[in-house]
């Protein structure tokens, strides 16, 4: 199963949507850089992730969350926060990585 990374804000680009469209059930999606805005709950785009929550494992890169002042914001339930070491572990445990840019 693949690891997908998404680094664009879903408010500005269709990157997360495209990723979800071709993401197999059982795969992992890690939100990094401006992609972390997609992890926030109570937004107009939160449903994109919520609809697939049971089938895809979602992760968000903590240092990018904190950098953007989102550390205390509510994240979508079920998204796991990882650090760069966790990012490395995710790349290791998936068969290959597709970076959505």
């Amino acid at each position: 199963m693949l690891l997908h990374t998404v680094n664009k804000s879903p408010f500005e680009r269709n990157t997360l949507e495209s990723c979800l469209r071709v993401c197999e059930d059982g795969a992992g999606i890690l939100l990094i850089e401006d992609g972390v805005y997609g992890a926030l709950d109570n937004t107009v785009v939160a449903d994109l992730i919520k609809k697939r929550m049971g089938n895809i494992k979602f992760y968000v890169l903590g240092p990018d969350v904190d950098a953007r002042g989102l550390g205390n914001q509510t994240m979508i339930d079920g998204i796991e926060t990882v650090d760069f070491g966790g990012f490395v572990d995710l790349v290791e445990k998936h068969s290959a990585t597709q970076s959505w840019l």
Binding site: M1, L2, A27, Q98, S99
Partner: peptide
């Protein structure tokens, strides 16, 4: 179909 094909890849390069 693209999903299935992508999942089989060993190296994926994007831009």
């Amino acid at each position: 179909d693209l999903k299935a094909l992508m999942d089989k890849q060993e190296v994926i390069l994007t831009a």
